[in-house]
């Protein structure tokens, strides 16, 4: 039976949970243990863990803020980089256009000069050619006249220099 108070091991037949003699002992030590745990937790452990969690939360918040800051800075840097790039490109285009215009002008001048030179040269050449041609025609006439006089002479004819010359001139015109 379980009513055996102050029952120790050998006399504890039945359910040890119903040994009412052990209740004051258990309750006393339990209350002591609960109070001890309560004070350990509420005085030391819980504030400490709360502080750790708060600190971690703060660290995380700071880190996120820092990251946001850095991100903004990076965006800013990228923007300025893009701007610089666009500026440089525009400048390069301006310089290229200027250079092109300069080159075009130089080229035009050079072409004009060359054209003038060519025109002068060809005029001179034409003059020379016409002179040469004139002299060549003259030579041909002289040769023809002489040849004609010789031929006429060889056939035993009387050579009339004037008539031959006019005949050659007629032929040459033809």
């Amino acid at each position: 039976m379980a009513t055996d108070t102050h029952g120790a091991a050998e006399s504890a037949a039945g359910m040890p949970q119903l040994e009412f003699g052990t209740f004051p002992n258990q309750i006393f030590w339990l209350v002591l243990a609960l109070i001890a745990i309560y004070f350990i937790l509420s005085r030391i452990a819980l504030p400490r863990i709360a502080a750790i969690l708060a600190e971690r939360q703060g660290t995380i918040t700071n880190a996120i803020a820092n990251a946001e800051d850095l991100k903004a800075k990076a965006a800013e840097a990228e923007e300025s980089y893009n701007k610089a790039l666009a500026d440089a490109r525009a400048e390069a285009q301006a310089i290229a256009a200027e250079a092109r215009a300069q080159i075009q002008a130089d080229l035009d001048v050079a072409i004009a000069k060359a054209d003038a030179e060519i025109a002068a040269k060809s005029a001179e050449s034409e003059k020379a050619i016409s002179a040469i041609r004139a002299s060549a025609v003259e030579s041909v006439r002289e040769v023809s006249v002489e040849t004609a006089q010789d031929i006429v002479g060889a056939f035993g004819g009387k050579t009339d220099a004037k008539a031959i010359a006019s005949a050659v001139a007629d032929r040459m015109k033809g």
């Binding site: 029952g7 040994e19 003699g21 004051p24 002992n25």
Partner: peptide
């Protein structure tokens, strides 16, 4: 589940270490 005194003896008073 038997409650035993730690340091011998039979009696379990309210203060006995068990």
């Amino acid at each position: 589940f038997i409650v035993k005194p730690l340091f011998g003896g039979d009696a379990i008073h309210w203060y006995t270490p068990t």
